[in-house]
Write a protein that binds this DNA or RNA. Structure first.
Length: 197
DNA sequence: GGATCGATCGGCT
DNA sequence: GCCGATCGATCCG
């Protein structure tokens, strides 16, 4: 299995988001491979996107979004949850893809142990759930997913055909501005592992 | 199955 | 001070 290169991420964010469906997120934890098939993502694009953490310009928190592509942006929210994004496009243009849900593939027992024994369908079906299952926390904020020794990276897998890719508005995003109603959520049609049907 | 509500704290204004 | 790219428990049907 080959890893996705920086060139993959250095493209239009909607293209990256769409093509991430069906790829494999891998976390090496205590020498074990924990992995899952990406089944749901959301794109956050530019400072004009008012749903993006970058919409007020660069801050200490969102700095990785303004950095080069292929790096992680991990943030802490609601006082108890982590969410994982992959930075896209070019340096100094803030854009990223939020990984929202996986279908567990490898290391399922280890994931379940980290998630207090919840059933398989809930193990990684949510942005904070998958971070808990894979042990992704703020230590990965700014980590290079393309580094040879990375403990978190994305492997090329089968992908999905266009008729299996569905779109919709982003979860938790409301408002009338064009960017807020844009169909920037992508998910695999019919997957039981997406966070919302 | 779906709706509602409380938990809990870092980052920003 | 305020609020959030959420989750899980609990309620209802």
């Amino acid at each position: 299995m080959s890893r996705l290169s920086r060139d993959f991420f250095a493209r239009d964010t909607l293209t990256v988001a769409r093509e991430l469906l069906g790829q494999r997120l891998v976390r090496v934890l205590d020498g074990e491979r924990l992995s899952g098939r990406i089944v749901e993502v959301e794109a956050y694009i530019g400072e004009d996107d008012r749903a993006s953490h970058a919409h007020c310009g660069p801050t200490g928190r969102n700095a990785p979004m303004f950095g080069p592509p292929g790096y992680a942006y991990v943030y802490f929210i609601y006082g108890m949850h982590h969410c994982f994004n992959v930075v896209t496009e070019r340096e100094n243009y803030p854009a990223a893809v939020l990984i929202r849900a996986l279908e567990p593939l490898q290391g399922i027992e280890a994931m379940r142990a980290r998630r207090d024994g919840v059933p398989n369908l809930r193990l990684t079906s949510g942005p904070a759930r998958l971070c808990q299952a894979l042990g992704i926390d703020r230590l990965f904020d700014g980590a290079d997913l393309c580094a040879p020794d990375a403990l978190l990276f994305i492997e090329q897998d089968a992908g999905v055909p266009d008729d299996a890719a569905a779109t919709g508005s982003r979860v938790g995003v409301r408002g009338n501005a064009a960017a807020l109603t844009a169909p920037w959520r992508f998910y695999i049609r019919g997957s039981r592992h997406v966070s919302r049907q």
